[in-house]
Design a protein around this nucleic acid. Structure first.
Ligand SMILES: [Mn+2]
Length: 307
DNA sequence: ATGGACCGTTACAT
DNA sequence: TCTCAACGGTCCAT
């Protein structure tokens, strides 16, 4: 789900970019985005479980383009899923299953277009598909990293440590994770839209916001790890934090109604859940390719128990 | 008028 | 065995 409306919210900090600006530098790829887009080209074959390498070719086309511009990519993949979005996952699983059955029925009735329409709605990218892309990429000498958990955190680690100069994705969460530079909507020609953390102040409402404050705003507005309090989105979350003036964010969350007129007192568990969500953004485990070991995305603050 | 919730559509590429 | 998220529209509450 990402952060609802975040890209629109940071529009004034967004600029057109061409990936050739990263010539002779490294960028990290949220490869799932390519895999997912590439899967539409062969949705029918995937639904029928026919063998196809069209999604691999689609990813290779992107790699060709980056190579042409002398950009060095590091492909990042998801590992284990965090058990935090079960409800949404269940709904998606159901939707895919229904569309697969409907598609097969249309096929039996000879309604080819209707069938194809259903098949595009039951696309599921499997670890096996990711593995094929990994093997094809490694064959051409391109580095791949399978994150221990979410690719998001892994991409942010590479960005924050300066191992890459930009992250290429479609997911606004990457800003919340603290990436220094993110490129969204990059097409096959290498054109995309760039958001730099250091430019967030170009958004009127975000003048003076630190990455920590920005992350807290995102969490209050609703994120994958914690739904928002009913009636609270980015704008109200932003105003609340401005009003609270650098007070401890965890206390602000617990007493959110003091900062947002239109809501009542939050549920008793909200404060602790906010804290847990924040720590998931801060301390999720990632792979450090230099030390070759698992480390938290950020070093634990002194005196903080990350549980 | 504004912000937020919710819904359906888009993607690929012939 | 089984990973999406952004966008644009409408409707509703404030
Ligand atoms: Mn995400």
């Amino acid at each position: 789900m990402g952060i609802q409306g975040l890209l629109r919210f940071v529009k004034d900090a967004t600029e057109d970019v061409h990936v050739k600006e990263y010539a002779n530098q490294a960028v990290a790829i949220d490869t799932y985005c390519w895999l997912h887009k590439g899967s539409f080209a062969c949705a029918e074959k995937l639904a029928k479980k026919e063998k196809t390498d069209q999604y691999v070719k689609y990813c290779m086309k992107y790699l060709d383009m980056l190579e042409l511009h002398k950009v060095r990519p590091i492909l990042v993949f998801d590992g284990c899923n965090l058990p935090s979005k079960e409800l949404v996952e269940h709904q998606r699983h159901k939707r895919r299953k229904e569309n697969l059955e409907k598609g097969k029925q249309f096929l039996r009735e000879g309604k080819l277009n209707a069938a194809r329409d259903c098949f595009t709605k039951c696309i599921s990218v499997t670890p096996a598909m990711a593995l094929e892309v990994i093997q094809a990429a490694r064959k051409r000498g391109i580095d791949c990293i399978v994150a221990p958990y979410e690719a998001d955190a892994q991409l942010a680690f590479l960005s924050k440590k300066g191992i890459v100069q930009a992250v290429i994705t479609e997911d606004s969460d990457l800003l919340c994770f603290g990436c220094t530079t993110v490129i969204f909507k990059m097409d096959m020609l290498g054109r995309g839209q760039q958001v730099k953390m250091e430019n967030l102040g170009r958004v009127k409402n975000l003048v003076g916001f630190t990455p920590d404050l920005f992350r807290h705003m995102c969490i209050l507005s609703g994120c994958d790890y914690l739904p928002s309090v009913k009636g609270v989105g980015l704008v109200k979350a932003c105003k609340a934090l401005k009003l609270s003036k650098s007070k401890d964010a965890y206390q602000v969350a617990r007493k959110l109604h003091q900062y947002i007129k239109s809501i009542g007192p939050v549920e008793a568990s909200y404060g602790a859940n906010f804290e847990r969500a924040d720590k998931t953004f801060l301390y999720q485990l990632v792979f450090d390719p230099r030390k070759r070991e698992l480390v938290p995305l950020n070093e634990y603050a002194s005196g903080v128990n990350p549980d």
